[in-house]
Design a protein around this nucleic acid. Structure first.
Ligand SMILES: Nc1ccn([C@H]2C[C@H](O)[C@@H](COP(=O)(O)OP(=O)(O)OP(=O)(O)O)O2)c(=O)n1
Length: 676
DNA sequence: CTTGGGCGGGTTT
DNA sequence: TAAACCCGC
C-alpha cells in the first residue's frame, strides 16, 4: 500500500445528517393545520409518496396505493399533491387526473428552501442530500464550541497515564436528549477523550440546528452525528421521528458490520449487487475483510477506494459547500390510458413543461440571478424496441432579457427539440415512429450567472430599471404579473429590488446569514383587486397566501377552516381551448393564448407579441446583437422576433432543413456566449 | 379501477 | 459534447 488511504483527519471531522420527518406530510400538515397525531399521507395520482408517523402505525408505507392504505386505516387523510389543472391556476384541485393535470411540487421546494436557509445561518458547509436532507460539516462549529467551553472552564480533564496526555471528560447525561442516543456506547455516563467530546458537542450543535428549524418553521427532523456522512446518514434514521443519534468512533465496526451491504449510501443499487456477486459478500463486515488491492482487481481504482472506505464508515471525499440548484426539470408521464399519439399533444405538453420550468426559474431569480444555457428534452416511447430519443440544445445568454419576459422563448426552444426528436433530424437514419409517447422530460442545465458587477452593466441596468418601473406603476395592471400558485413568494416580479441590487454591487460576497432576499413588494391578485404585500416576517407566508388564493377543493374535507372560494377573475383566464382530446393539456399559466392549441406548423406560434410585457416597454437601454445571417445589428428588443423570422422561413422548407436550423442556432448561441 | 411519478445530482461512453 | 446510464429521495 503506497499511501495511507484512511487518515486521522478522516476521524477529526464532525458531520451531521439532518432528515426531515415524513417531509411532504409535514408540509401538508402545517399548510392545513392538521396535527401530527392524525394519520395522513400525501398521494400522487394513485400512490402514496409520503406517509406520516401516525399513519405508519397502521402499517401504511410509501408506494402503497391510496386504496390499500385506506383499507388499513379508514380515517386516513390523503392529500394529493398540488397540480396544474386545465383552465385553472395551480392548486389542490379535486380529483386530479393524470391524463390532464401536471404535478406541482412547489410547496415542498419552497419549504425545502426555507429549511436550507435556516441551516445556512449556521454554516455554508452543507450538502443538500435531497429536497429534505442535508449533510452538514459542523467541525468548525464544534471546535469553536469546544474552545469556548474550555475557556469557560466547563470542561473537566483527567490525566491519562497511557498516552501521557490530558483527556477531556464527557458526562453524556449533561447533554440531555441531544446526547441520549449513542450507538453501541456503554451505558456509562462518563466518557473520555477528544473524539467523544467532539461527538458530544456535535450532538449539541446538531440539536441547535434542529431547534432552529422547528422554532422558525415548525418542522421536525431527525439527525445523525458522526465523523462521516455515511455513518451520520445511517444514524439519522435510527430514532425517527424527531430524534437524533450519535455514532461514536469506537462503535463503528459493530454498528455497520452487521448491516447488509446495500444499506450503505450508493451501494443500494447495481454496484452493491455487483459487489455481492463478485465477492460473495453479504454484510459490511464481510466486505471489510477484503483488502484494497483485492478490490482494485475487481473495480476501477476510484470505485475500489470508495468501497474500501465506505465499509469502514469513512467518506470518500469532503463535504462540499452548499451550491445553488444545478438543474431544473419538469416531467410528465402519461400512465397507460393517456399516452400521446400526435405531435400536437406533444407540443402542448412540452409547452406546459416549459412554462413550469420558466416560472420556477423566474422564482429562483429572487435568490440567484442565473440562467440555464442548455435545454434537454427526453421523450420516452411506449413502444418496445424504440429507445427513448434524447436531444439537447443550447440557448444564449443574450436572450436572457427576452427569455425572462415570458416563457415563449423557452417554449419555442423546447418545441424545436420536439421536432428534432420526432423527425429524428439528428441522425438521418429513419427510425420507427416514437408514438405513442408515454413520458416527456424537459431539463435545464449548465447555468451561468448573469449577476455581474461589471463588464456587462447593461443587464444590470435593465434589471434595476424594471424594478423601478414595477414599484412605480403600483400594479394597476395585473398582467404585469405571471401566475403560479398565487403564493406571495411566487410573484417575484419585484424580485430585482433595489436593495437586492445594492447588495450585489457593494455587499461582500459573503452573505450575512440573516439577510434574506425578500421581494420589496409582492403581488397577488384577489378577485378584482390587487394587493401589495410587504415582505413578511411570517415564514409561513406562502401557506397563508395559498390558503387565500388557491382553489381549495380538497380543503373541504381536510380542514374545518372555511377557505373562501376565489373567483377566477383577475388575471386568471379560462382557456380558449376546445378539448377534443383529453390528453391535450390546457393548463393556464402565463399567457396561454401564446402557445395553447397552436399547431406547430402555424407560424403564429413564432409571432411574439411585442407588447405583451409592460416591463419591456419601460426599458430604454437597447442591447444589440449581431445577426449572423445578415451581419447586421438587430436591437435585442426585436431579436427574438427577428430570429423567429429566419426560423419561420426555414421551417417553411420543412424538416429536411431542420438540421440546418439547429446548426444556425448553435452558431448564434456560440457567438453570443463568446461575448460574455 | 389501474399504475413508480417527479424530481435532483452525478458518471460513463 | 451529446446521450446514456446510475443513484437516491
Ligand atoms: N421515491 C421517493 C422518495 C421520497 N419522495 C419525497 C416524499 C418524501 O416526503 C420526501 C423525503 O423523502 P424521505 O425518504 O426522507 O422520506 P420521508 O421524509 O417521507 O420520511 P422519513 O421520515 O422516513 O424520512 O421526498 C418522493 O417523492 N419519492
Amino acid at each position: 500500500m503506497s499511501k495511507q488511504i484512511i487518515t486521522e483527519a478522516d476521524y477529526a471531522k464532525v458531520i451531521s445528517h439532518i432528515d426531515l420527518d415524513c417531509f411532504y406530510c409535514q408540509v401538508e400538515q402545517r399548510r392545513l393545520g392538521i396535527s401530527d397525531t392524525v394519520p395522513l399521507c400525501v398521494a400522487q395520482w394513485g400512490n402514496l409518496v409520503a406517509v406520516n408517523y401516525a399513519a405508519r402505525k397502521y402499517g401504511i408505507m410509501r408506494n402503497e396505493s391510496v386504496n390499500e392504505a385506506k383499507l388499513k386505516c379508514p380515517d386516513l387523510i390523503s392529500v394529493h399533491v398540488a397540480t396544474f389543472a386545465p383552465g385553472k391556476k395551480a392548486g389542490y384541485h379535486l380529483k386530479p387526473n393524470q391524463a390532464t393535470h401536471k404535478v406541482c411540487l412547489d410547496v415542498y421546494r419552497r419549504a425545502s428552501r426555507q429549511i436550507f436557509s435556516v441551516i445556512q445561518n449556521f454554516t455554508t458547509e452543507y450538502q443538500k442530500g435531497s429536497i429534505d436532507e442535508a449533510y452538514i460539516n459542523i467541525t468548525q462549529l464544534v471546535n469553536d464550541e469546544i474552545d469556548k467551553q474550555i475557556s469557560l472552564g466547563n470542561i473537566e480533564f483527567v490525566y491519562d497515564n497511557q498516552s501521557n496526555e490530558k483527556l477531556p471528560v464527557i458526562n453524556w447525561s449533561q447533554g440531555g436528549i441531544a446526547t441520549k442516543y449513542r450507538v453501541g456506547s456503554s451505558s456509562d455516563d462518563r466518557d473520555f477523550g477528544w473524539s467523544s467530546l467532539r461527538s458530544y458537542y456535535g450532538a449539541i450543535v446538531t440539536a441547535r440546528i434542529r431547534d432552529a428549524i422547528f422554532s422558525q418553521l415548525g418542522f421536525t427532523c431527525s439527525a445523525g452525528v458522526s465523523h462521516s456522512r455515511i455513518l451520520s446518514k445511517l444514524g439519522s434514521s435510527l430514532n425517527k421521528p424527531n430524534k437524533q443519534a450519535i455514532i461514536l468512533q469506537t462503535d463503528v465496526p459493530d454498528f455497520i458490520g452487521s448491516m447488509k451491504l446495500e444499506k450503505l449510501r450508493f451501494l443500494g443499487g447495481k454496484l452493491g449487487k455487483n459487489i455481492k456477486e463478485l465477492l460473495g459478500v453479504e454484510t459490511v463486515s464481510d466486505m471489510q475483510r477484503h483488502s484494497l488491492e483485492k478490490l482494485e482487481g475487481f473495480f476501477p481504482l476510484k470505485t475500489a477506494r470508495f468501497i474500501y472506505k465506505s465499509c469502514r464508515g469513512i467518506d470518500p471525499d469532503v463535504v462540499p459547500s452548499s451550491t445553488k440548484p444545478k438543474s431544473f426539470s419538469s416531467v410528465k408521464s402519461f400512465g397507460n390510458i393517456s399516452k400521446l399519439t400526435t405531435l400536437q399533444q406533444v407540443q402542448d405538453w412540452v409547452a406546459v413543461l416549459s412554462t413550469d420550468i420558466w416560472e420556477r426559474l423566474m422564482e429562483q431569480q429572487d435568490i440567484d440571478r442565473y440562467w440555464p444555457k442548455k435545454l434537454t428534452l427526453t421523450m420516452v416511447s411506449s413502444k418496445i424496441n424504440v429507445e427513448a430519443r434524447n436531444c439537447s440544445k443550447n440557448f444564449p445568454l443574450h436572450f436572457c432579457k427576452n427569455v425572462m419576459e415570458s416563457p415563449e422563448l423557452l417554449i419555442k426552444s423546447a418545441s424545436e427539440l420536439v421536432i428534432q426528436l420526432i423527425y429524428n433530424t439528428k441522425n438521418k437514419k429513419s427510425l420507427p415512429s416514437i408514438f405513442p409517447v408515454e413520458c416527456l422530460l424537459l431539463h435545464t442545465t449548465q447555468f451561468y450567472s448573469y449577476d455581474i458587477n461589471h463588464k456587462n452593466k447593461q443587464i444590470t441596468n435593465w434589471v434595476s430599471q424594471s424594478t423601478l418601473k414595477i414599484n412605480k406603476s403600483e400594479l394597476q395592471n395585473s398582467e404585469l404579473t405571471y401566475d403560479r400558485t398565487e403564493s406571495a413568494e411566487s410573484h417575484i416580479v419585484s424580485s430585482f429590488s433595489t436593495k437586492h441590487y445594492r447588495d450585489n454591487l457593494y455587499g461582500s460576497s459573503k452573505k450575512s446569514p440573516t439577510s434574506k432576499k425578500k421581494p420589496l413588494v409582492t403581488i397577488t391578485t384577489k378577485k378584482n383587486s390587487t394587493t401589495l404585500l410587504s415582505p413578511k416576517k411570517n415564514l409561513f407566508s406562502y401557506f397563508d397566501a395559498l390558503k387565500k388564493s388557491e382553489t381549495h377543493d380538497q380543503a373541504e374535507n381536510l380542514s374545518s377552516e372555511p377557505f373562501k372560494t376565489q373567483s377566477d377573475q383577475g388575471k386568471i383566464s379560462i382557456k380558449p381551448h376546445t378539448q377534443e382530446n383529453p390528453t391535450t393539456p390546457n393548463i393556464i399559466k402565463a399567457d396561454p393564448s401564446i402557445y395553447m392549441n397552436q399547431s406547430f406548423a402555424d407560424q403564429s406560434i413564432y409571432n411574439l407579441s411585442e407588447n405583451n410585457s409592460a416591463i419591456s416597454d419601460s426599458i430604454d437601454f437597447i442591447q444589440c446583437t449581431q445577426c449572423p445571417e445578415k451581419n447586421s445589428n438587430i436591437p435585442s428588443k426585436d431579436w427574438a422576433s427577428h430570429v423567429d423570422y429566419h426560423l419561420a422561413l426555414k421551417l417553411q422548407e420543412k424538416e429536411k432543413h431542420a438540421e440546418k436550423i439547429v446548426n444556425q442556432f448553435s452558431n448564434i448561441f456560440k457567438k453570443q456566449n463568446a461575448d460574455i
